[in-house]
Structure formats: structure tokens, C-alpha cells
Design a protein around this nucleic acid. Structure first.
Lengths: 262, 262
DNA sequence: GATACCAGAAATGCATACATTTCAGGAATG
DNA sequence: CATTCCTGAAATGTATGCATTTCTGGTATC
């Protein structure tokens, strides 16, 4: 029963998977990347409904993997789920973003505190110290180049990731990943922009001083001090955002800027 | 085109949706609830693979909504995603859980601090104070009853939710929801168990003193004090877990206890 | 006896098709 | 002129079936 063999028109036998673009990844994974990129670049109005059929056609896949991608982006905070009514693009107010930065600061503070409490031997700090020294070399006494800023961004995110590693808390790393999935909440969200701002160099130097003090505090197992430095360090991002708001037209260089409603 | 009308055997015309159980919700939503319940009750070994076909048959639905449910539970932290290899039940070590409680304490600390900083008029504290008074009435000078504990749990979670409301931070509420989706990280995870433990009454009184001090600190806009009280308050959950580990056999009453590998 | 190899089985990934619900617009009514 | 009701179109929800990948167990080879 069930009419397996004699089914005359079983669909169309689509050559799924290796459609026409890069292969090796699943359709759902590619859809997630593509959609996130579209969202960050502001191709959807905040509050706009994400219609599945046109979207699937646009991305060249069916609704099933698209659905999974939408589900993931909703959990990342880009979309809101309305049962039986689909997904709609989330919008973010300025206080939202300040709170996201504050929250990241709080989590990084906890990471720094745990790192200070849990470090066992001085050698564990080597990676952190080396990254700090590299950033010093990239900034101090030099004019900023585009390449230099790119390298700084790389070292900076590895620096912050290393503190998470030293904290030895899987839950904390997960929580941090969920916060920083929003582009403007991540540690290097405003660094690209910073490059063109007049006070750039000063803010880089302040950041570096924060890093230096963080390494020192963690090495000395001064958990409370490490925590408050990390919190203050996150406020640099807020200053960058504020100056971006003032200098009109620069917002273009800030990732996800178009998602911010003023 | 597409052979719409003359399609002879288009499947089976299943009467989907209102299958046989409660209706009004989607299959995916019901699957999420059912699976989460199964996971928390320990029906899956940590590390066990979640095979979709048997699971779908067991839950009485097809693989598509089941997939969505699995995806959600993975984002909640119950499952791990292995591309092309399905979902496997996550396992949690004791340090994981301590860290989850610590993390929740950190977030509640931030919520209490923000509440203290952002409160504008004294009347806003009324709900919080009323909930506190109710809890006092339920505990002080009384023998614990099962019903009383249930009511305490209700007031307690509303108390913690109210602090989040007073913090006026959507991001923070989201972050807290993501942490407390793990059963043993939530504020009332160990309260059921507490009822039978010998030191129950003392821990309830300590919690109530924390609540009292929290209301006082928030009302006086003492942000730093509110923060540290909230952090210390979360440690009560840790004490409960520790005493649950000692008293053998009581773990059954702790939600998600079977997910903890020792 | 251990490793490599190789079917067959089973599991995931996804496209299609259909059922059900929601939405938009216009006609009818107050 | 505003409101309600209705109807067709469109959108989401989900079951089925097939393609591809992964697993498993047995056999051959060293």
C-alpha cells in the first residue's frame, strides 16, 4: 500500500544541493549568511515582513531551508517571530544599542573577573600579552593606515576572545556570542568608522591603556579591578557611536547602522 | 503547467493540524514543548543522537515541524547542531551549572543596578514591594506547606521579572530569557527541592532578606549596592544545588537533574 | 589479528504539493 | 460616510518523496 512504485508524477526530480553556486555547505547555512548580510546592510525596512516565497525565489532555494535560516536569525535577534504570521525584521532604538553595549561590557567584566580568579600559572597570560603588544606596535607613534586598522581589528577581537578562553566558562562564551551576534554590539563594531574620525588616535590609545590594565589586573588576580576595567572599556564603543551620530553621513561605515531607528 | 489538476495521486490528503490532540497551536510549537519536557526529564542520554524519523513517529508528526523544534531547542542550549549529522543531546557538567548560576547572578545584578539608576518615582516600586510582602507572609513564622511553596515560587519569579521590567532594557530581558531557558539556571529551579531539605526555612529567610535589601537599595538609587545584593542572591541557588548533591535521591525533584553528568 | 575497503542500510537535506489560515479589497448595510 | 461582511488571493504550516551523505557490519587483504 501507500502507492510507492506506481506513482506517476513524483514531482520533478530536482538536482538539489549543488545548484549553481558554491557547494560544500548546506542551503540553510548559505541562506543564513546571505540573509544576515542583507539585513545588516539594511535591505529590509524595520518592521517589514519577510515573505517566504519571494525570498526563497530571490535566494534560489526552497522554503524549507529558508525557514531554518529565518529561525536562526530570529534567535540572533534580527527577526521577530509571529506565529502563523511569519517573521518580521526587528528594529533597534538608540537606547537598545546603548543597552546592548552595556550588556556586553557586563559580560566582558564577568569574563575578566573569572579569568583573574581562575588563572593558575603566569604562562597562561602569554597570548593575551602578545596580542596587546602587537596592538601597541600598530598604533603607538604611527599614522593610521587602512591596513593597520584591519590588523588592529583582528588582534582586538582575538584579545577579547582570549579573555573568554581564560574565563573557562562555556556558558559565558555562549552568552557573549549571542550578544555580539548583533553587529553594533560586537567589540569591533565601530572600529572601521573610528579610522576616519578625528579623535581616532586618541580612542585607540585609550583602548590600549585599557588592555594594558586588564592584562595587569588579571595577572595580579585582581578580579574586581579587572571587571571594572572591562566594563569601562566597553564604553569606548558608546563614545564611538555617539560621535558617529554627530558626524552625519559616516553611519554608512558602521555595520547595521540602517537598522537603527532614530 | 505544473500538472495541478490532473495529478492523480497527490499524496494522502492528511488532515494535518488538528490531528487528535489539543488544537490551536502549531505542530512545531507542540513538538517544542513535548521535546523540552522529555529532555528535562532525562529521557535522552547526554550525547545521544536525536534521530528524526523515530522521533517524528513517536510525537505523531512529520520531520519538518520536528526539525524546527529541534532547531529551537538547540538555540536554547539543550541540543548541539552537527551539520549533516543531526542534533545530539547536550550534557552539562557541574562547573557548567555553577557558571550558569553565576551568569544569571551577573545579569540580575545588572538589572538591579539599572533599575536603581532608572527609576523615576517611588510609586514604581509598589509592585516589587507588594510581591516581597506576600512572600514574607508566606514564609515568616509559618510551617512550609506544599501549596505555600508553590505560591512562593510564583511570587518569586514575578519579583525577579519585575526587576527586569524596572531595568527598562529589552536586550537584558532577552539575555536573561536565554540563560534561564536552561532549567537549572532559572531563579526557582531548586525551590521545589528546597521544600524537603532540612535547612529549607533558613534559606527561604535568607532569600527574603535579600529581596528586602534589594527593594531598599533600588528605592534609594544605590545601584552598586543593588547589584552586589542581586549577585549574592543568586548564590542561594548554588547552595541549594550543593545540598541536593549531598542528599542522595533528592535530585529527582530538581528539574533537569538528569542532564547533569558527574 | 588488525586494518582497509566496500556494499547495504539508514539518516539527514531539501524540493514539491497541498491544507489551512490570514489578509486585502470591495460590496452591502447601517 | 463609516462599518461589517464576504470572497478570492496570498502567505504560512506541514506531509510526502527523493537525492545525497553518513554509518555499520562484514569481507578481503596484509
Amino acid at each position: 500500500m501507500r502507492s510507492k512504485p506506481q506513482n506517476p508524477i513524483p514531482g520533478k526530480v530536482a538536482k538539489q544541493g549543488t545548484s549553481a553556486s558554491e557547494q560544500g555547505t548546506s542551503q540553510a547555512a548559505r541562506a543564513t549568511l546571505a540573509l544576515r548580510e542583507l539585513l545588516v546592510q539594511g535591505h529590509f525596512q524595520p518592521g517589514e515582513r519577510m515573505r517566504e516565497v519571494p525570498l526563497a525565489k530571490r535566494l534560489g532555494l526552497s522554503r524549507i531551508p529558508l525557514r531554518l535560516a529565518l529561525e536562526r536569525l530570529a534567535h540572533e535577534g534580527f527577526l521577530e517571530i509571529r506565529p502563523t504570521r511569519g517573521f518580521i525584521a526587528q528594529q533597534f532604538s538608540l537606547p537598545d544599542i546603548y543597552d546592548a553595549i552595556d550588556l556586553r561590557g557586563s559580560l566582558e567584566g564577568m569574563a575578566a573577573r573569572l579569568a583573574a580568579e581562575r588563572i593558575s600559572e603566569a604562562g597562561e597570560l602569554e597570548t593575551l600579552r602578545a596580542l596587546h603588544e602587537e596592538m601597541v606596535g600598530l598604533i603607538r607613534g604611527k599614522a593610521l593606515t587602512l591596513n593597520g586598522v584591519a590588523e588592529y581589528i583582528d588582534r582586538n577581537s582575538r584579545f577579547h576572545s582570549e579573555i573568554l578562553t581564560l574565563s573557562r566558562s562555556r556558558r559565558l562564551r555562549r552568552a557573549m556570542e549571542q550578544i555580539t551576534s548583533l553587529p553594533f554590539a560586537s567589540a569591533s563594531a565601530f572600529l572601521q568608522r573610528q579610522y576616519v574620525a578625528p579623535e581616532s588616535h586618541e580612542l585607540f590609545l585609550i583602548s590600549i591603556e585599557h588592555h594594558r590594565a586588564l592584562v595587569e589586573a588579571i595577572g595580579a588576580r585582581e578580579g574586581a579591578r579587572a571587571e571594572s576595567i572591562a566594563r569601562e572599556h566597553a564604553r569606548v564603543a558608546r563614545r564611538n557611536l555617539e560621535s558617529a551620530m554627530e558626524n552625519q553621513g559616516i553611519g554608512e561605515s558602521v555595520p547595521g547602522f540602517k537598522l537603527i531607528q532614530l
